[in-house]
């Protein structure tokens, strides 16, 4: 069973539909027992860093997530990846979940359009669940204005947008994708297959 954490983060349906399409069982939940009982957990997210953290706090999910992420595979998508880090600087400095060391800053791409929106290609840096089924040069779909700054040892893949941008990360059983695998066609589905492992049957 895959638990998708429900915290008013927008566009959650697309993530659920993609996981279902791959043949995995999925529930959308904000309940502690259901999250802790799941085999794997996905934290989606569209919106702003402070609002997302406030929403998780209000629902009492911060400690639940931290506990769950110690025990089982955990994937943050887009803003859901950004809040895995120690802190973010969107509107104001906000504490994150600290599941991966690092912080989230505005994209610094001189003269380029912000948000970084559209299909961009990946350069794989590290072999892990979210990169094992794809190759450098594959395209995925990004929509974001902020990007993670972290140590190279956590970086699974990068993309180029006026400079290097962290595209996916991993730290033990905690994974994150800045792009939207659920909107990235067959490449995105392969990334989700990698994370879902035997939970994905298609």
């Amino acid at each position: 069973m895959i638990a998708v954490i429900d915290y008013d983060a927008g566009n959650i349906q697309s993530v659920i539909k993609a996981v279902k399409y791959l043949g995995a069982n999925v529930i959308l939940t904000d309940k502690e027992d259901e999250i802790l009982a799941a085999d794997k957990i996905i934290l989606p997210g569209v919106g702003a860093f402070p609002a997302a953290m406030a929403s998780l706090k209000e629902k009492g999910l911060v400690s639940v997530i931290k506990r769950a992420a110690k025990e089982k595979p955990f994937l943050g998508i887009c803003l859901g990846m950004q809040i895995l880090f120690d802190r973010g600087f969107e509107f104001e400095e906000t504490e994150g979940l600290s599941l991966i060391p690092g912080e989230v800053r505005p994209i610094d791409a001189k003269g380029l359009k912000i948000p970084h929106m559209g299909w961009n290609s990946l350069e794989i840096r590290k072999d892990c669940a979210v990169t094992e089924r794809i190759k450098s040069g594959d395209f995925v779909y990004f929509v974001h204005s902020f990007a993670a700054k972290t140590d190279a040892k956590y970086i699974a893949s990068v993309t180029d947008y006026g400079g290097e941008i962290v595209a996916s990360v991993c730290n033990g059983n905690v994974f994150g994708t800045q792009f939207h695998p659920e909107k990235s066609g067959e490449t995105g589905l392969d990334i989700l297959r990698g994370f879902l492992g035997k939970e994905a049957t298609l």
């Binding site: 349906q13 697309s14 539909k17 993609a18 279902k20 399409y21 779909y141 659920e182 909107k183 990235s184 066609g185 995105g188 589905l189």
Partner: peptide, 8 residues
């Protein structure tokens, strides 16, 4: 469409 198509 969103059930079977995974792009924007």
């Amino acid at each position: 469409c969103a059930d079977v198509v995974f792009m924007p």
